[in-house]
């Protein structure tokens, strides 16, 4: 399944993450993450985002995420909301 249009969720505030998704011209899940804790948790956050997207059954997508120290469940909720918005007609 592919998303239909760009969408976003979240905020740039502390302890949150701003997730933007858009249809991708490339195959697969393309993720660009900026995080204030990139060095400590970058890989972990990337894995959490990709896992959420995969679980939602999305094959091709570009995700740009600006993380401000969000916890796992916040990350997952924001990603899920953005993807669901992007699937709406």
């Amino acid at each position: 399944m592919d998303i239909k249009h760009p969408a976003k969720a979240g905020s740039l505030e502390s302890n949150d993450i701003y997730v933007m998704v858009e249809p991708s011209s490339e195959e697969g899940i393309v993720l660009e993450l900026d995080s204030i804790v990139m060095r400590q948790f970058g890989r972990h956050i990337e894995a959490a985002i990709k896992e959420t997207v995969t679980k939602l059954g999305i094959d091709n997508i570009r995700i740009v995420a600006k993380d401000r120290g969000a916890l796992d469940f916040t990350i997952k909720a924001r990603v899920e909301t953005a993807v669901k918005r992007a699937l709406e007609e």
Binding site: P6, K8, S11, L12, E13, S14, Y18, M20, E22, R68
Partner: peptide
């Protein structure tokens, strides 16, 4: 006090709703 983050979120949301990502 996090005002910058709130302002930028607001501006980003408005831009996004105009299709400017």
């Amino acid at each position: 006090a996090g005002i910058a983050a709130q302002l930028l979120t607001h501006i980003s949301d408005i831009l996004f709703s105009k299709g400017i990502t």
